[in-house]
Design a protein around this nucleic acid. Structure first.
Length: 763
RNA sequence: GCCCGGGUGGCGGAAUGGUUUACGCAGAGGACUUAAAAUCCUUGCCCAAAUUUUGGGUUGUGGGUUCAAAUCCCACCCCGGGCACCA
C-alpha cells in the first residue's frame, strides 16, 4: 500500500501554511463562491453522508480553481438550534458544553477529508458575534413590518416541546424527531414570507437550480387563481355576508350549499351567535378534535346544518349554510361554496347529508365573477413563517414588551442579547421557553419609556441562523453590519451552492426570502442569493437511509484511517451519479484502492519528455473529463480516469502525459496527486495549476469501425477511414462475405449511411 | 388521489435515436510462487444448431412511430421521493 497516511498528514499541514485555499477576498479578479451547506453538529462527529456532500462540492471547487478562478470555499457549523440541543439533551450535557466538544471533533474531521476549505473564514452560529446579526435581522424584519405576533392554531411538537413552522412538519410529523404534531392555540412571532410569495415563485424561472427543487418550491408556494365571491346571509343579525374563495367560479350555478369551517363559525359565536345548542357543540367538538389529531387527514366528513341561509348570487336561490370539518381555517377564506356536481368532496358530503345536486351548466369564469360582483384573485398555499421556539439553545428574540408602549425592539447598540448559561435549560412543555423562569434575564426596562418591562423569552428558529450565513463568511469578524459590503459586491450572489435536496422547502426557501427582504431594504443588490444550486442524492446502506437506530451508519474516520481520504472520496464519487445518491458497499472500495496503487506505481514508470505532451490520445480524455466534471457526473469522470491510466500503461506515456493525468485526477484525489506532482519536480501546488486544455484536432481519429447493418441488424464491422464516402462504404460493405450472403437474391430497396458510423441496407 | 424521479448482466452503473452492457465489483480459467496473498493475462446475458463457429432473442410489460428505439409517443405494472379534503 502506498503511504497515504504520511502523505495526507504532510499535505494537510502544508496547505494550511501555504494558504492555497485562501483567495484574496478584497482583490480577487475572478471570484468564484463555491458554497456547500454547513453541517449541524448534532452527533459525535461527521457522518459519511456529510463527507459525500462535501466531496462532491469540493471537486467542483477544485476544478473551478484550476480553471483560473479565485475560489472561495468556506466551512462552518450550524451549531445553534434544536438539532444540536436535542443531541446534547440525549447525552445529558449542557448544549454550550457539547458545542465546544462537537466543534473540536467536527473541525478535526473536516481537516481530514481533503477539502480546499478557506479556514480563515469559519463561523459558528452560536458565536455571539454571529447571532448578534441574526438578532439584528429580526429587528429589521420587525421595523419593516415583516415580523408580527398573532394568536392562531399552530403546530406543536409534544416531544420537542416547542412550536414548529409548517415547513418543519412532514406528513403530520416533526421534521426533527418524528413525533406526531398537534395543534395549539398560541400567540407567536411570525415572519411575513407570504408577502413575497409571488416573487419567490416568479424568480424561480430565472434560477439555474435542480429542477426537482424548483418544482417542490412551486408546489409549496401553491399559487392558484380564483374568485372571491360574497354570499348574502338572509337570516343572521351578526353578519350580512360570507366571502368564499373558489377556483371554479364557472360552477356557481351548481352551488347548492355553503360550507364553512368550524373556526369561522366560532367567530360568530364570539360575536354573540348561540341560537342552537347542537350546532355550538359540533363546532367546539370539531375544533378540539383537530387539536388532538393535528395534521392527520380527516377520515370521515362531518357537518351540521347551521340553520342559516345564504343566497346564491348567480341563481338568487336560498341555500343552506353548513358547518363542516373538511373546510380548513387559513385556506382561502375558510368558507367554500358546495358544488356537488363538480367537486368530489362536496359530492361525498352531499350524498351523506342528502343535499341536492344540481347539474347546472358551466359559465365563463370571468364573466360570472363580474356579474355577481366578485373579485378575481390569487391564493397561495404558503403560510407565514412561525419563528418563535420555546427552547433554550438559540438566539433570544430581541424584543421587549412594555405594558405602556407595547412591543419594542431591543436597541441595536444593545445587541447581542446574550443567551445566559442556565442550568435548567431543558424544554418546559408549558408553552414557555426555559428562559421564562429567569428574572435576571427577562426583567428589563422599556427602551422607550424606561419603565419596567419584560423581555421576550422565546428564541428564534434554527433556520433563521442559516438563512444568511453565506453573507457572514465573507467577513466573520465584521463589526458594522451583517457582512462587509465591498466583499458582498465582489463575491455575491453565490456561484455554486451544493447541498441536500431535503431542504427544498426549508432552508432553500427561507434563505431566498431573507435575501429578497435584504434586497428591498437596500443591503444587497441581488434578489436571489444562489445563481446555481445542485442537490445531491442520498447515501444509502443496505437499501436504507443510514441511521443510528438501524445500525447502518458508516463512520468516515475509520475508513479514512484504513484506506486514506483520497480512496474514500473517490469511492463515494464512483458509486453512481452524484445527483442520484448511491449505496455504500465495502467491497466496492477494492476497485478504487487498486486504481490508486497503480497511479502510485505509474509515478516511477513514466519517463521521457517532461515538457511536452506527446500522446495525442490524451485529448479525448481531457475533453470527456472536463465536460463531465462540469455537469457533476463524477462517476463517469473516474471511469474515464481509469481508462486514461490503462492507456498510459498499455501505450506507454511520458512524464508530460502523466502530468496531465495527475491534473485531471487532482480534484478527486488531492493528496496523492500533490505528492506525485512534487516528486516529478514541480514546485507549485498542483491545485493552483491550470486545468489541461484539449485540442479538438487531436481528437479526430483516422480510422473507425464501420458498422454494417441489414434491416437494422448488425451483420459485420470493418475498419474504415474517417470521412469515407457513401459509395466507398457500400463497396467496402459488399466486400464482406457475410454481407454478400445476406444480400444475395435480394433487392436492396434503400441504403442509409451515417458518416463515420454505419451503413444500413434495407431489403 | 396528485406531482416528480426511476426500472439495462450476479451487483453498482455506462450509453438520451445508430455496435446494449463502458468503467468497476464479484465469479471462472490461466501465469508467477514451495505455497498463499498481492499482481498480471483471458473470460464474461439467454436459447438453438453445430463444437468454439453460426442463427435467433434480450434494456419492467403490451402496443405505436422509424431504415434503425434502452432512448421518442400511447397504455399498463412495479420501486423510490414529495404533497395531500388547498376549495
Amino acid at each position: 500500500m502506498y503511504p497515504f497516511r504520511k502523505i495526507e498528514a504532510k499535505w494537510s499541514k502544508k496547505w494550511q501554511t501555504s494558504k492555497v485555499y485562501e483567495p484574496n477576498l478584497d482583490k480577487a479578479k475572478k471570484p468564484f463562491y463555491n458554497l456547500m451547506m454547513f453541517p449541524y453538529p448534532s452527533a459525535e462527529g461527521l457522518h459519511v453522508g456529510n463527507m459525500y456532500a462535501f466531496t462532491g462540492s469540493d471537486i467542483y471547487g477544485r476544478f473551478k480553481r484550476m480553471s483560473g478562478n479565485d475560489v472561495f470555499e468556506p466551512m462552518g457549523l450550524d451549531g445553534f438550534g434544536i438539532h444540536s440541543e436535542n443531541y446534547a439533551l440525549k447525552i445529558g450535557k449542557h448544549p454550550a458544553e457539547q458545542a465546544k466538544v462537537s466543534e473540536k471533533n467536527f473541525y478535526k474531521q473536516l481537516q481530514m477529508i481533503g477539502n480546499g476549505f478557506a479556514w480563515n473564514e469559519h463561523l459558528e452560529t452560536y458565536d455571539p458575534e454571529y447571532y448578534k446579526w441574526t438578532q439584528w435581522l429580526f429587528i429589521q424584519m420587525y421595523k419593516n413590518g415583516l415580523a408580527y405576533r398573532k394568536k392562531q392554531a399552530v403546530n406543536w411538537c409534544p416531544s420537542c416541546k416547542t412550536v414548529l413552522a409548517d415547513e418543519q412538519v412532514e406528513g403530520g410529523k416533526c421534521e426533527r424527531c418524528g413525533t406526531i404534531v398537534v395543534k395549539k392555540d398560541l400567540e407567536q412571532w411570525f415572519f411575513k414570507i407570504t408577502k413575497y410569495a409571488d416573487r419567490l415563485l416568479k424568480n424561480l424561472d430565472k434560477l439555474d437550480w435542480s429542477e426537482k427543487i424548483k418544482i417542490a418550491q412551486r408546489n409549496w408556494i401553491g399559487k392558484s387563481t380564483g374568485s372571491l365571491i360574497q354570499f348574502k346571509i338572509s337570516n343572521f343579525k351578526f353578519q350580512n355576508n360570507i366571502e368564499v374563495f373558489t377556483t371554479r367560479p364557472d360552477t356557481i350555478f351548481g352551488a347548492t350549499f355553503l360550507a364553512v369551517s368550524p373556526e369561522l363559525a366560532r367567530e360568530w359565536i364570539s360575536a354573540g351567535w348561540s341560537e342552537n345548542k347542537e350546532v355550538v357543540e359540533f363546532i367546539n367538538k370539531t375544533i378540539k378534535g383537530r387539536g388532538d389529531t393535528a395534521a392527520e387527514a380527516i377520515k370521515e366528513k362531518e357537518g351540521i346544518d347551521s340553520r342559516l341561509k345564504a343566497v346564491n348570487p348567480a341563481t338568487g336561490e336560498e341555500i343552506p349554510i353548513w358547518v363542516v370539518n373538511y373546510v380548513l381555517p387559513g385556506v382561502g377564506t375558510g368558507a367554500i361554496m358546495g358544488v356537488p356536481a363538480h367537486d368530489e368532496r362536496d359530492m361525498e358530503f352531499a350524498k351523506k347529508f342528502n343535499l341536492p345536486v344540481s347539474n347546472a351548466p358551466l359559465v365563463d369564469a370571468d364573466v360570472i365573477t363580474k356579474k355577481v360582483k366578485g373579485k378575481r384573485t390569487t391564493n397561495y398555499r404558503l403560510r407565514d413563517w412561525l419563528i418563535s421556539r420555546q427552547r433554550y439553545w438559540g438566539p433570544p428574540i430581541p424584543m421587549i414588551y412594555c405594558d405602556k408602549c407595547g412591543w419594542q425592539p431591543v436597541p441595536e447598540k444593545d445587541l447581542p442579547v446574550l443567551l445566559p448559561k442556565i442550568k435548567d435549560f431543558r424544554p418546559t412543555g408549558t408553552d414557555k421557553s426555559p428562559l421564562a423562569t429567569h428574572k435576571e434575564f427577562y426583567e428589563v426596562k422599556c427602551p422607550n419609556c424606561k419603565e419596567k418591562a419584560r423581555r421576550e423569552t422565546d428564541v428564534s428558529d434554527t433556520f433563521l441562523d442559516s438563512a444568511w450565513y453565506y453573507l457572514r463568511y465573507l467577513d466573520p469578524k465584521y463589526k458594522n453590519g451583517l457582512s462587509n459590503p465591498k466583499r458582498i459586491k465582489r463575491w455575491l450572489p453565490v456561484d455554486m451552492y451544493i447541498g441536500g435536496a431535503e431542504h427544498a422547502v426549508l432552508h432553500l426557501l427561507y434563505v431566498r426570502f431573507v435575501a429578497l427582504a435584504l434586497h428591498d431594504w437596500g443591503y444587497v443588490d441581488f434578489e436571489e442569493p444562489f445563481k446555481q444550486f445542485r442537490g445531491h442524492g442520498l447515501l444509502m446502506k443496505d437499501g436504507a437511509k443510514m441511521s443510528k437506530s438501524k445500525g447502518n451508519v458508516i463512520n468516515p474516520d475509520e475508513y479514512i484511517k484504513k484506506f486514506g481520504a483520497d480512496a474514500i472520496r473517490m469511492y463515494l464519487m464512483f458509486l453512481s451519479p452524484f445527483e442520484d445518491g448511491g449505496e455504500w458497499r465495502d467491497e466496492g472500495l477494492t476497485g478504487i484502492t487498486r486504481f490508486l496503487e497503480r497511479v502510485w506505481k505509474m509515478g516511477d514508470q513514466v519517463t521521457g519528455n517532461k515538457q511536452q505532451v506527446t500522446s495525442n490520445w490524451i485529448h479525448a480524455h481531457i475533453k470527456k473529463i472536463t465536460e463531465d466534471i462540469e455537469t457533476l457526473h463524477y462517476n463517469t469522470c473516474i471511469s474515464e480516469l481509469m481508462i486514461f491510466l490503462n492507456n498510459l500503461s498499455e501505450k506507454g506515456g511520458t512524464k508530460a502525459d502523466f502530468n496531465v493525468f495527475l491534473k485531471l485526477l487532482a480534484p478527486f484525489a488531492p493528496f496523492i496527486t500533490e505528492e506525485l506532482w512534487s516528486e516529478l519536480g514541480n514546485k507549485k501546488s498542483i491545485h493552483s495549476e491550470s486545468w489541461p486544455e484539449f485540442n479538438a484536432r487531436h481528437i479526430m481519429q483516422k480510422y473507425f469501425d464501420l458498422v454494417i447493418q441489414v434491416n437494422g441488424k448488425v451483420r459485420a464491422k470493418v475498419a474504415a477511414q474517417v470521412g469515407l464516402s457513401e459509395s466507398d462504404a457500400r463497396k467496402l460493405a459488399l466486400k464482406s462475405e457475410k454481407i454478400g450472403n445476406a444480400l444475395s437474391n435480394k433487392e436492396v430497396k434503400k441504403v442509409i449511411y451515417v458518416q463515420n458510423k454505419l451503413i444500413n441496407f434495407v431489403v
